[in-house]
Simulated scan of single mutants.
Amino acid sequence: MAEFTPQTRTLISSAALSRPRGKVVYWTVLSVVLVVFTLVFIGPLYWMATSGFKNVHEVLHNPPTLYPHHPQASNYKTAWTQLQLARLLWNTVYYAFGALFFQLVLDVAAAYALSKLRPVLGNVVLGAMLATLMIPATVLVVPQYMTVLDLPILHLNLINHPWAIWLPTVANGFNIFLLKRFFDSIPQDLMAAAAIDGAGPIRTLVSVVLPMSRPILGVVSIFAVVNVWKDFLWPMLVEPDPKKQPINIGIQSLSQGVPENVLIAALAISAVPTLLIFLLFQRNIMSGLTAGSLKG
């Protein structure tokens, strides 16, 4: 008796694709879609990178030129020195990895407690955390600013202090949800075996859970660094001192009197680290997001 093999349902049947006309239509539509989406995403990056090599006249030319007719690589060197990008990059790295450290410590602890320790009203706490994701970030700007202006109980002013950037990023509901979902997929048998060996909750977290959680920890780390790196409004409010500003705000503060081509070159330099992070770790991001989706 012949074995029945279920067919995968698609928008275009395999019979239609087997015809010459079907193949032509399919590949034409696919090529057009790929080209259009590539231009949409790559176009602004190409314009920014090439405009850094143009002179002021070419940058302001309407319609814009497709490529620099007289390339000026010195624009990037001028942007690096005139806008003090080395100091601004260091400030950004300091803020980003400081936020990463505190997020990993506190978010991992919160997700582990909700997943494995199962406290009373844990689901209510998790639901409240996820509910905060529905609130637009701009709505929280004023209460967050009032908080760092006069920290409750301690009555400290955190303006121009790294904690003003780190504190709002520490308890990230989305990261806690990702970590909890992954921790839920860790077999309970491993937790029971660790308990039989005499391991307490903290030792189990360090010796069993964290070594198995490298994919999702990598994803959370990338999100934490990129979120701080690309933020603009909040650092502009809490870091008014130009010497302590991250690169996005520093470029804006020091841009007075800077030619447009040099300013665009500085913006291109500031975008390189996040692009490299994505290109180097895109596979880790996708595998980490899908990790823990199936239990077992």
Rank of each mutant, 00 (worst) to 15 (best):
N55K: 11
M146I: 08
W163V: 02
V93I: 15
L104C: 15
L149N: 12
A111V: 07
L88C: 08
V148C: 07
R87N: 13
L140V: 11
R87L: 05
A73Y: 05
Q84W: 03
Q72L: 06
M48C: 13
L158N: 15
M146S: 12
T147R: 11
L154Q: 04
L60G: 09
S74W: 03
L100F: 08
A79S: 03
G122P: 14
A113M: 09
L167W: 02
P68Y: 01
H69M: 09
L158W: 15
T92C: 09
L106F: 15
T138M: 05
H61M: 13
P119Q: 01
L154K: 03
N91P: 07
P162R: 05
Y94N: 08
I135V: 14
N75L: 04
K77R: 04
L100P: 11
T147A: 12
Y145E: 08
H57M: 10
L151E: 03
T65G: 10
L140C: 08
P71S: 01
F53R: 00
V59A: 01
L149Y: 10
L83S: 00
W47S: 13
P64M: 04
V142G: 10
N160K: 00
G122R: 01
P152C: 08
P143L: 11
L133H: 10
A96S: 15
H161T: 12
A73S: 05
A49E: 07
T147G: 07
T169W: 13
L126C: 02
M48S: 06
G127E: 09
Q103H: 10
P63T: 02
L167C: 10
V141D: 07
F102S: 02
Y145T: 07
L88P: 02
T38S: 09
W163P: 00
D150C: 04
Q103V: 09
H57F: 13
W166N: 06
N160Y: 01
A96F: 08
V105T: 12
K77A: 09
L83D: 00
A137V: 07
A109P: 01
I165H: 06
A171M: 01
N62L: 12
P136I: 10
V139L: 14
H57A: 14
M48L: 15
A79Y: 00
R118K: 15
L100E: 11
I135T: 14
T92S: 13
T138I: 11
H57N: 12
I165C: 09
V141M: 13
G122L: 14
Q84M: 01
Q82Y: 04
H70Q: 12
G98M: 14
H161S: 15
L130P: 00
F102V: 02
R118F: 10
W47A: 10
A111Y: 13
Q84Y: 05
L126H: 12
H69L: 06
A128P: 04
I42M: 14
I159H: 08
W90I: 12
P63A: 03
L121H: 12
A164E: 09
V93G: 04
V139T: 12
K77T: 03
G43N: 04
Y67T: 14
L140M: 14
Q103N: 15
F37A: 11
A171I: 05
S115F: 04
V108C: 11
L60S: 05
M146C: 03
G127V: 03
G122F: 13
V36A: 13
V36C: 13
A111M: 15
V108S: 10
A131Y: 10
T38F: 06
A164Y: 06
G52C: 00
V59E: 00
Y94P: 02
P152S: 13
V141E: 11
V170D: 03
T50E: 00
L126G: 04
